[in-house]
């Protein structure tokens, strides 16, 4: 790091106490404006293209692909997640700004799927990141993905999609699990 020190913050993130009068409106707006970071980790990202283009048109739910994690709300773990990718995923997740949600696609993040005995694909995603919605299937069709997003919208709308809060609360436990897999942790402790 050194020179880049000022771009990283090592402190634990403070919890966002949003709410009060606007809480209801905030949740309503958040549910209807989900920006998905355009980042594919596995084979499932091929299903996201028809979901977001003319055939299935996820934009009518107010969703959009954005190119940078800074502006995104949703991180989709699309399919199997290797150790090398996990490192990047953690960084992407921590760079996203606070009300943020994780959607896990396919069987692989749930229990390893067909890569249950792979030396390189992780078996359980929720040890490393808090997951709000699981979508099963290998791979889920775009219809299933849209149904999953509808579910995520319901959760956000009723204020129950609080994975990001859990992540901040249990950061030490998550970090311990992550460091068990990523031996050479060359990152700042928490990168915003």
């Amino acid at each position: 790091m050194g020179k880049d020190k000022k771009y990283f913050l090592d402190e634990k993130p403070e919890k966002l106490t949003y709410g009060g009068v606007f809480r209801r409106i905030n949740d309503w707006a958040r549910a209807r404006s989900l920006w998905v970071v355009a980042y594919g980790t596995g084979c499932g990202s091929i299903e996201l293209r028809p979901t977001f283009t003319s055939r299935f048109d996820a934009e009518r739910l107010g969703m959009r692909m954005v190119a940078t994690p800074r502006q995104a709300d949703v991180l989709i773990i699309s399919g199997y997640l290797t150790v090398k990718t996990l490192k990047r995923v953690i960084r992407v997740y921590e760079q996203m700004q606070s009300p943020k949600y994780v959607v896990a696609l396919g069987a692989c993040p749930i229990n390893g799927g067909m890569y249950y005995d792979s030396y390189n694909a992780i078996n359980r995603l929720d040890l490393y990141l808090p997951v709000d919605v699981w979508i099963t299937g290998c791979m889920p069709r775009p219809e299933a993905i849209l149904a999953g997003f509808k579910r995520l919208q319901e959760l956000i709308d009723s204020g129950r999609a609080d994975g990001w809060k859990k992540y901040i609360d249990n950061l030490d436990r998550y970090r311990e699990n992550q460091k068990k897999i990523i031996k050479n942790w060359k990152m700042p402790n928490y990168n915003w």
């Binding site: 390893g112 249950y116 030396y119 078996n123 359980r124």
Partner: peptide, 11 residues
């Protein structure tokens, strides 16, 4: 298989 079970856990 053993490596995966030891390193990544199972559900």
């Amino acid at each position: 298989l053993r490596y995966s079970m030891e390193k990544f856990g199972e559900r």
